[in-house]
Design a binder for these strands. Structure first.
Length: 667
RNA sequence: GGGUUAGUAGCUCAGUUGGUUAGAGCGGAGCGCUCAUAACGCUUUGGUCGUGGGUUCAAGUCCUACCUAACCCA
């Protein structure tokens, strides 16, 4: 398989992260790591790879951010671009070039492309009314406009949508509109002209293209594209009234820039131009293989917008063959959030553990099919077990046992163990197939199986026992085989953990490359000298895990909240006159036993249950499971007073039938 | 509000076109080994496959409704 692909051109792009804030682990696992592993794998297979990424710099967040920090737009973007560069280096990303979109090359390219679209008759001028902030002297995009929601009266509603009641409306309907930038209420509607890209005109072409190009796409990517097939492609405005971006090269548009999503995907091309003078041998080559990596929120742009523009150019642009989209990585049960200080950002991550530990552990729990929760506990398990125990320790035990009994030279080989070789080749083939298909979790499963084979082999053959029994040749043969495995591990691990692979490679005095092995063949000669390396990985102990969790994942209030629940049965207490034993349905548990003293209990009553662990307003201790007059009670039905509403302490609260059982009761 | 995707062991995930006893790894329990980084190997324990209906000789897999989450759109 890999043989046929030799020297074939592989174009690989990783979605361009935005220059706004520090990157976190989600960015790393969502685009950078999968694309980097794939790129390294392709290069090791001898393929001709062009692999680029860079910073996406245009759009409104930079404008807002720069104003806040009182910097120029370019300086602000540069500040974060430099952070990106540091992370690229820290995590060993093997981009041919990490570029940016605010460059002369980009501007030149976008101008050419725009003229091309215009020539093709796919650009149209349309006039619309837009909110204009007189004090800021600029038109406001939907996100830059705040006001009072016309539906619910929420005061911080956005220009197009209310975050509280999720109503949507036209910006013109918003009450008391104000600028999100300056806070000024001096807003008026002004007519403005914008250029539209007539995507509807190339819908047929795009659909035709789609039919033939999705064989290697992620399932979610195909689904999203299919959604647009049904809906149809819509003409989109590609210009904005903003002071930051690629200026529009058309008379009358001197104060406008291109919409960020018109220029950003083409950043792949301009960055390629900066990376390699032969860029066109990938980008204009129908035989090249193009793989894109991105997070799920970005699929629309890669499956629809970018290809439709490429097709519209009618200029032989290489479109995506393999579209790999990743889901999101959550952190310790919640989303990454800079403001809540939740999550690990890349500058912190590199202080916590070496790049290889992150690379391996993150890709081993990559969110390939669904959002995945990352925890330090899991991180430590993976590093300790796979890297430390199975790989690092294997290298260590083989080197040390050999040094002790044979000195620092590879012992002579013995007869070939066919069973072992068969197993190795099986796993190697699984690994290669998984990497070619960009199935990274499957790849890790195969990789660790390979690590396991070495340890199993040692246990079965017991070379230390052979030495004791004086069977030195047999012991040497086993160890020779183990060294061949170590060499193999360096090669197959290299795309994942490049630093470690290099350390392993340097164990041997022979200067061997880390090319991808198509099938297993021993290549370390007997007598080759080797060295005993420092431990390849360090164990992460429980105390460290606890400390890290504490530092980076401040406990969100995880106590259960009061929930709406229904009384499904009422029994009198056998001894206590005023108590009842209730059976309560809380949505998940349909037969929860609760002892209650309120007089108004009855079957069918919908009320509020404080489950075990719940801390009621004003209470110091959570509700415990306890035994009331010798009957166990699992929670408490609440009165209005207990919920902090009103003074009724005697009767439990009664709700209408509109409340959904099992939902949190929010008062 | 509409669309899409997902819901499988304590945790993280596999389960191809519906077809015997639902699979891994981690964690837990036990045994073995002592070359090695309290590392390695073996055995074992965990599941009403979100819930309720339906189609079928047969449903984790198909249909439907609902619940939950995420993303996209409005």
């Amino acid at each position: 398989m890999t043989n046929d692909n030799k020297k074939q051109k592989y174009l690989i792009t990783s979605a361009l992260p935005y220059v706004n804030g520090e990157l976190h682990l989600g960015h790393l696992v969502g685009c950078w790591l999968p694309s980097d592993i794939y790129a390294r794998f392709c290069r090791a297979c001898g393929r001709d790879v062009l692999y680029v990424c860079g910073a996406d710099e245009h759009g409104t967040p930079v404008i807002v951010g720069a104003m806040k920090e009182n910097m120029t737009y370019f300086d602000y973007a540069t500040k974060y671009y430099e952070k990106h560069l540091r992370a690229v280096k820290d995590f060993n990303m093997s981009f041919d070039f990490y570029g940016r979109t605010h460059t002369e090359l980009q501007e030149k390219l976008i101008h050419e492309l725009f003229l091309r679209l215009d020539e093709e008759g796919l650009i149209e001028e349309r006039e619309t009314l837009q909110p204009f902030s007189i004090d800021d002297n600029m038109f406001l995009a939907d996100r830059q406009l705040l006001g009072t929601c016309p539906k619910c009266g929420y005061e911080n509603a956005r220009g197009d949508q209310c975050d509280k009641c999720s109503a949507s409306y036209e910006a013109t309907e918003l009450l008391n509109p104000r600028s999100a930038i300056s806070g000024s209420t001096n807003i008026e509607l002004r007519p403005t002209k914008n250029l539209f890209f007539l995507a509807s005109k190339i819908e047929g072409k795009w659909k035709h293209w789609l039919e033939k190009h999705t064989s290697k796409w992620s399932k979610t990517a195909i689904a999203i594209a299919q959604g647009w097939v049904k809906e149809g492609l819509q003409d989109t405005s590609i210009t904005r009234d903003l002071p930051w971006g690629i200026p529009v090269n058309k008379p009358g548009y001197e104060n406008k820039v291109f919409y960020v999503w018109f220029d950003a995907p083409w950043g792949y091309v301009s960055i390629s131009q900066a990376a390699n003078k032969d860029w066109a041998t990938w980008w204009k080559n129908p035989d090249a293989h193009y793989a894109q990596f991105m997070a799920k929120d970005n699929v629309k742009f890669h499956a629809v917008f970018f290809p439709e523009q490429q097709l519209a150019m009618n200029d032989n642009w290489k479109t995506v063959d393999q579209l790999k989209s990743m889901n999101f990585l959550n952190f310790e049960g919640g989303k990454f959030s800079k403001s809540e200080n939740r999550g690990v950002f890349l500058d912190q991550a590199i202080e916590i553990a070496p790049a290889d530990a992150w690379r391996y552990a993150l890709i081993a729990s990559a969110p390939e099919t669904d959002d995945t929760n990352f925890t330090f506990s899991r991180f430590a398990d993976i590093v300790n077990k796979d890297l430390n125990g199975m790989l690092g320790n294997f290298v260590s035990r083989v080197c040390k046992l050999t040094e002790k009994n044979f000195g620092l030279r590879i012992p002579n080989p013995g007869p070939i163990d066919d069973a072992l070789i068969t197993q190795i080749n099986e796993k190697l083939s699984e690994l290669t197939t998984a990497l070619d298909a960009c199935e990274f979790r499957a790849a890790i499963v195969a990789l660790r199986s390979l690590y396991a084979l070495g340890n199993e082999f040692m246990t079965i053959k017991e070379p230390w026992a052979l030495v004791k029994r004086g069977e030195t040749d047999a012991a040497g043969a086993v160890l020779n085989q183990c060294f061949q495995l170590i060499d193999l591990y360096a090669r197959v691990s290299a795309p994942f953990i490049p630093d470690t692979a290099e350390k392993i490679r340097k164990i041997f005095s022979a200067d061997l490359n880390l090319s991808w092995p198509e099938t297993y063949t021993p290549r370390i000669d007997e007598g080759t000298s080797f060295c005993v390396p420092e431990n390849l990985f360090t164990r992460i102990d429980d105390e460290t895990v606890a400390a890290l969790t504490d530092k980076y994942a401040p406990k969100i209030d995880s106590a259960p909240k009061p929930i709406v629940a229904k009384i499904v049965a009422v029994k009198k207490h056998p001894t206590q006159e005023n108590l009842h034993i209730l059976t309560v349905d809380d949505g998940t548990n349909h037969e929860l036993q609760v002892v209650c003293g309120a007089p108004n209990v009855r079957i069918g009553l919908i009320g509020v249950l404080a489950p075990i662990g719940c801390i009621l307003p004003g209470a110091k201790k959570p509700i415990m499971q306890r035994t009331v007059a010798s009957i166990e009670s699992y929670g408490m039905m609440c009165s209005a007073a207990e919920l902090g509403q009103g003074k009724n302490t005697d009767e439990i609260l009664e709700l209408s039938n509109d409340f959904n059982i099992g939902k949190e009761y929010k008062g």
